[in-house]
Design a protein around this nucleic acid. Structure first.
Lengths: 207, 207
DNA sequence: TAGATTGTTAATCGATTAACAATC
DNA sequence: TAGATTGTTAATCGATTAACAATC
């Protein structure tokens, strides 16, 4: 009888987390929903509602303990798992993600890279050697990869997703602009850059 | 008395557009909301509702003309404007975006690159020379840049946003993980990679 | 005509906002 | 105590889903 948490709430938690990290580095130990809301342009009611979904973290009349709340959110989001990523498709975007420093502060690490291009296989990106897609199963197993990141062209994305799942990844982060079919027990998040850019175009075309 | 269109609807239009491009390349000239829905995992009712927001595009008993609908959506999204982008921050991510081919098929083109690092200024990425941030105003004006893309560290993002707006860009696409303050008449879209990755972590931690 | 499919109205569902008692 | 702020319930708002008349 677990209550379902809305995706909107889940998507705001990383914003709270990041802001709490920042606030903590400023040596502030207590923060109110009002102050947190001001920093993020989110109403304090919304923040309290989101947090209350997971329990009672604050103190009435006082606010929230920054350090404690940060850790609570980290735990809710599962960041303590220190997930291990494999990137498939070491083109410009895949290469950029392999070098993306912000992952580390959230507890993610890139531990494997794959490509099918012979010119790319064997090269190193950010200290990680690029392997052939054909060796995916063996390496994903050996390096205990949790998450597969898909940065191949759309035409190849479904095949790569199938291989990643067969190799045992537990979640997929897809940058290819196409709808993937995956088993319902495998969480899938699509990162579709053309949506945001198109939305920007739409808003710029108004009035 | 213009009716406001929901962001959810606007965010689905690029998906329809992309699928229609694909369907058109398959030489199919008519498509039903049912078929479009199957390809995208969206209910046909939702699609008809979305499209009806902008007028009557379909023919009862028949479906939608693929080519016509594709063009209608392109116009609604403002893709015919052929927006010109400037990328500020030519690190791994900025460089990857400068090379991102999918932009072209949506009618966007990258026409300027900026960085503050002397080692990067003067180099070429995808045939475009990297300029100093200090020359931003002049170059943005000369090259008629519409959209500023921010791929600098979070600590520098607000300053860059201010400069882009002062230089005359009409919209901002922000990849820095921070809340930017911009005038209300400047559309801003945030592309926050840590949200999707954190959401994936959350779902992988359930059950 | 019969079957298919849109466009639109009504019903439902879910998320946000408002209000306020509890309490530090 | 008085002021501040949470957690929760109720009210509102908005988006999705269902139903179906219109019509090709």
């Amino acid at each position: 009888m677990k209550k379902t948490i809305s995706q909107a709430t889940i998507d705001r938690l990383p914003l709270y987390f990041r802001t709490l990290q920042l606030v903590e580095s400023e040596k502030t130990s207590i923060i109110s929903s009002d102050e947190l809301g001001k920093r993020l342009d989110i109403t304090p009611e919304q923040i309290r509602k989101d947090l209350a979904t997971f329990g009672q973290f604050g103190r009435k009349g006082i606010g929230y303990d920054v350090h404690e709340l940060k850790n609570k959110i980290s735990n809710i989001l599962g960041l303590h798992n220190r997930w291990r990523l494999a990137i498939v498709g070491v083109g410009h975007l895949g290469g950029a993600l392999a070098n993306y420093v912000n992952f580390a502060s959230l507890g993610f690490s890139v531990v494997a890279l794959f490509d099918k291009d012979k010119k790319i296989i064997g090269t190193e990106v950010n200290g990680i050697k690029v392997n052939a897609v054909s060796s995916m199963k063996k390496i994903i197993d050996k390096r205990a990869v949790d998450i597969g990141v898909i940065t191949v062209p759309a035409t190849e994305a479904q095949e790569v997703a199938d291989k990643l799942i067969a190799a045992g990844v537990k979640g997929i982060w897809n940058f290819a602009p196409i709808k993937l079919s995956v088993p319902s027990e495998i969480p899938l998040v699509n990162e579709d850059l053309s949506i945001g850019l198109s939305a920007l175009s739409y808003h710029m075309s108004q009035d």
